[in-house]
Design a protein around this nucleic acid. Sequence first.
DNA 1: TCTGGGGTCCTAGGACCC
DNA 2: TCTGGGGTCCTAGGACCC
Length: 392
Amino acid sequence: MSSRIMHIDMDAFFASVEQQVNPSLRGKPVIIGGRDYKYRSIICAASYEAKRLGVTSAMPSWLALKICPQAIFVPADTPKYIYTSNRIFEILKAFSPKIEKFSVDEFFLEADGCRKLFGSEEEMGRSVKEKIREEFGITCSVGAAPTKITAKLAAKMKKPDGLYVIGRDEALAILEGLPVEKICGIGERLKKRFHLLGIQTCGQLAKYPDRVLKEHFGVIGLWLKAACRVEDFSDIDYFAEGDGPPKSIGHSQTLRQASCDQQYIKDWIYLLSEMVAMRLRHKALMARTVYFYISDGIGGGSAKRKTFTEPTYDGYEIYQRCLHIVEQMGLSDLCARVLGVSVSHLSFADHHYLFDRQDRRDRLIRSVDRVNDQYGEWTVYPASLKNATYER
DNA sequence: TCTGGGGTCCTAGGACCC
DNA sequence: TCTGGGGTCCTAGGACCC
């Protein structure tokens, strides 16, 4: 059995979208940053004009600014990118019934059985690219190969605006000398551990004895070996809407500097809890598990999660649960540089659920959400958060 | 300014129930 | 008879991705 997978990878997605929306940015080095986007953050995306000047993805923004002072910084507009991503997904639906949204700017689709409709994979790839360019004015790179891993590699190899169709033999030839860390699934840690075993390339990994791999890496080792032998038949995860419901929702924040001011830290925990809760309610979800992370920025951080019986979408309740976890962690004096609050064990919210017990609070929460939806986030927020929000 | 912030998945071990 | 297996839930920790 041989399957054919196509990978569609948008080129400098966030930056391209901004250049499309604002023509004055076209042809110029554009850098997309997050919150506090010029200094205390890393960049989310860079246009190819900026990349040519040496800006790379995940570079701290102060460094990008140093390398490329003429760059135009644009704050990230996540909803815009998600909206565009969803529309791209809709377009791809016309090409194959099996599509997976791998991330906001990457998609896999099963290319088997589409030959009658679209001709060869080259033709199909060209149609996909044309359609996306027509609709949004932005480019993407397309790779077609026998497996997800190799399709992703193929797309990356011809960036930007590329199209690369490879068969099994060619895929094997590419993998033979390819450093192991180039394939999706091998990061910094695994790379080092493979190197210790004398495995530098995918070709070497492909020939390594199963027993040793199993011993050192468990099933992941065997899975990666199969990937290097182009024998990975993992399925396309297909969701009709492009996205399944999220498994967890969280926020974290690196403070400008470490602080041991208890009230200040608690304000931040409350703020993060409210931010998480607001997103839960937006998605009509409730959560049972609360995860709290704190790091002083010097040693490693510590984290703890706890699952509660009652699900909630109330920011104050999430905050209280965080404090409960803090207590369990035995942290009497909090000192923090990084704080994180996230929730999981999500279920769809049943508004009747809270109706009896906290109807009034429920109505308050929803009114506040409505005001914030209409007039912008943080138009209305708990008074006790004044200091924390001030620093944002 | 001196690597952010948002996620996912896997595993092993313990608790508990039948 | 207090030993045993299977299943589920939970936690902690590790690793990875964009």
